[in-house]
Every structure is written in structure tokens, then in C-alpha cells.
């Protein structure tokens, strides 16, 4: 663990909490893309299947459980509890055009052709484009509420900090994971134009 990855995880945690609190307090999910939240739930579910097979650390296990629980709680708030405030008309991104290519790419380019590893790779590829429906919705509605902007800024910062973590780990442990790095760079670049507006 290093400071870059720790602050990255905390930025990620912050983003999720900001979103949950925003929807809960305002009792509305207006301006929030439910489709991006579906993609995030798929990302965490396919990536954290190793919860039952591999124990890395208490921190790792706790964070995975929190990310899984919060992503499904967010889906519950959007699609069930505050369903009436969900903005169907502006949340129109075809997420199957993200899921399928990510899955096919995961079958072609991975570290090992095993069930868990292909799903982990799929989750890495999917996460890099998971925010597209949200950015698409923000561009369609022409504006993002300030809280949504804070959410996107924290979420974008998390993977940018992970890039610093990968540089640090390459320099100190000579450890690197090219799949995660390339996808992480794509993910951060997608936020850049939003950061520019921010």
C-alpha cells in the first residue's frame, strides 16, 4: 500500500458517499445516470468475486464489501425508492455497446484464460468506460448540479491517483499490470474534458 493508492481509494469512497448522500438527502436522482450505476455494480460484482477465494487484507476485504453494498444501494435508490425522479429521457446511452466489447476484449486480451481472471479483466475494461452514460447525460442536460460535479471530480481523481500508484509500484516493487494501467489511462482521459469544464 502507498499514499497514492490510499488517497485514490479514499477519493473513490468519497465519490460513492457523495452520490449516496445526494440522492438520499434530496430524495431525488435527477441528473444521475442510472445506467452508469448499473455498469459500476457490474464492475464491482465481476471484479470482487475473489472475495470468497483470496484474502489480501482486512482493508481490501472491507473496501470490496463496501463498494459492492453501496453500488447496489445506489441502484435501489435510483430504480426503486426514488424511481419517480429518475430522468429516463436523458439517460439513454446504450450500455450494451459498452458491455459487449469489454467482454469480447477480455476474452482476447487477459493475463490468464480462467473464469475469475477473464471476469476481472472484463471489469477493468468496463470500469474505464462506465462513466460514459453519466458524462453523456451531463452533456445532454447541458449542466451538472454542483454535487454531481463533486462526485465526478472525486471519481475521476481516484483513477488518476491510481496511475501515480502504478508509477510508484513500478519504481519501487518493479510490479506493474499493463491491462489495469492502459484501462486506467483511458478512464482518466475520459474525465479530462469534464475536469476541463469543472
Amino acid at each position: 500500500m502507498n499514499i497514492f493508492r490510499l488517497t485514490g481509494d479514499l477519493a473513490h469512497l468519497l465519490a460513492i458517499i457523495i452520490l449516496l448522500l445526494k440522492i438520499w438527502k434530496t430524495r431525488s436522482c435527477a441528473g444521475i445516470s442510472g445506467k452508469s450505476q448499473i455498469l459500476f455494480a457490474i464492475v464491482y460484482t465481476t471484479r470482487y468475486l475473489d472475495l470468497v477465494t483470496t484474502y489480501v487484507s482486512a482493508y481490501n476485504t472491507l473496501m470490496k464489501i463496501f463498494f459492492l453494498a453501496s453500488s447496489y444501494a445506489t441502484l435501489y435508490l435510483i430504480y426503486i425508492k426514488f424511481k419517480a425522479t429518475y430522468d429516463h429521457n436523458h439517460d439513454t446511452f446504450r450500455i450494451e455497446f459498452l458491455i459487449l466489447p469489454a467482454f469480447i476484449l477480455a476474452l482476447l486480451i487477459n493475463h490468464a484464460f480462467t473464469f475469475l481472471e477473464v471476469l476481472w479483466t472484463f471489469s477493468i475494461y468496463l470500469e474505464s468506460v462506465a462513466i460514459l452514460p453519466q458524462l453523456f447525460m451531463v452533456s445532454k442536460t447541458g449542466e451538472a448540479e454542483s454535487i454531481t460535479s463533486h462526485y465526478l471530480f472525486a471519481l475521476g481523481s481516484y483513477r488518476a491517483l491510481y496511475i501515480l500508484n502504478w508509477i510508484y509500484r513500478y519504481a519501487t516493487e518493479v510490479h506493474y499490470d499493463l491491462i489495469a494501467i492502459v484501462a486506467g489511462i483511458v478512464q482518466t482521459v475520459l474525465y479530462c474534458d469534464f475536469f476541463y469544464l469543472y
Binding site: 473513490h12 471484479r47 483470496t54 489480501v56 487484507s57 481490501n60 470490496k64 493475463h111 490468464a112
Partner: peptide, 10 residues
């Protein structure tokens, strides 16, 4: 042997 990749990052 099949390379077992352990992912220690979230």
C-alpha cells in the same frame, strides 16, 4: 502451470 494472478488492488 497456469499463471495464478493475485490482484491486490481494489
Amino acid at each position: 502451470a497456469r499463471p495464478v494472478v493475485v490482484h491486490d488492488e481494489l
